[in-house]
Amino acid sequence: MFKAISDPTRRVLVEELAERDGQTLFELCVRLISRHGLDVSRQAVAKHLDVLEAAGLVHVRREGRYRLHTLDRAPLRAAWDEWFRPLVQPDDPIKE
C-alpha cells in the first residue's frame, strides 16, 4: 500500500477517485491533465491504476460496456489504524 502511494501521480489518482467513484480511464486522464497539469499518457495512467488495483486501493468493475474505477478506502483505514494512529496518538489504546 505505501509503495503504491509513494508515487505522486498515483496519489493524485487516489484523491480524484475520492472525489467521485466510478470513473472511466478517460475521465481520470482528463482530470490529471486539466486539473493537475500532469503530462501523462493514457498508457501510463492505466499502469498506475494497475499498481493501485494490485494494492487493493482501486477496484475495476464492468458496468454495461464501461470499465469503471472505484476507490477502496479499507487499505488506507488499515494503515491509519495500524501505523499512523498509534504514532500520532500514542496514548489512545489500539482498537481491536
Partner: peptide, 10 residues
C-alpha cells in the same frame, strides 16, 4: 468502438 467506450473515451 467497443474499446473506446470501455475506456470512456468520447
Amino acid at each position: 468502438k467497443r474499446a473506446l467506450v470501455a475506456d470512456g473515451i468520447p
